[in-house]
């Protein structure tokens, strides 16, 4: 096996294992920590595909900011077994059903796509320069629309926070 393959399998096992850890662990804090480890594994995959910028931004934004806030909230809530809401059978069933349907849709969408393997030989494909060029020429409209979406979400958060 080449080192590339070894790393791929290591990261895949890590991502799947930690992903299972997120939903299987009883303690919400360890769920969050498993999720952070999953993000690291996914960042490793990005690096294997020469997308260093995406990898580090994934860590900064998700592991470094969003998960800190998650941890923050969970620490303050102090979840125990007796404060945990009682789960209804019906709700559990609905959850499994909707999750299964989502899985089915993803599977159906991925089945018909042509395999578009990343080019591992060129090392500059994931550089910030190329990403910026693509974002501001080819995908400028989706990019700007999503930034407007973020702005409105930010303003919305401030409005909700201001209400006493």
């Amino acid at each position: 096996m080449e080192i590339h393959e070894i790393l791929f399998w290591f990261l895949t096992v890590m991502a799947l294992g930690c992903g299972l850890g997120v939903i299987l662990s009883r303690n919400p804090i360890s769920s969050v920590l498993f999720l952070i480890a999953t993000f690291f594994a996914i960042s490793g995959h990005y690096i294997l595909m020469n997308a260093q910028f995406l990898a580090i931004v994934n860590i900064i934004v998700y592991a470094g900011a969003i998960m800190v806030l998650f941890l923050f909230v969970i620490m303050l809530m102090n979840l125990n077994a007796d404060t945990e809401p009682q789960k209804n059978r019906l709700i559990q069933f609905a959850g499994v059903l909707s999750g299964g349907i989502l899985f089915l849709v993803i599977l159906a969408a991925l089945r018909t796509t042509t395999s578009n393997a990343a080019d591992f030989t060129s090392t500059d494909i994931g550089l910030m320069k190329n990403l910026g060029k693509v974002l501001f020429t080819q995908y400028v409209l989706p990019f700007e629309i999503s930034s407007v979406l973020f702005l409105s979400a930010m303003i919305g958060a401030i409005v909700i926070g201001k209400k006493e």
Partner: peptide
């Protein structure tokens, strides 16, 4: 010498707070 050196520093910095939080 990685081409995202500054972002690497920010990544490590943002992870650094976990030590204190945990």
């Amino acid at each position: 010498d990685i081409n995202i050196g500054i972002l690497f520093i920010f990544g490590v910095l943002s992870i650094g707070v976990y030590g204190i939080m945990l």
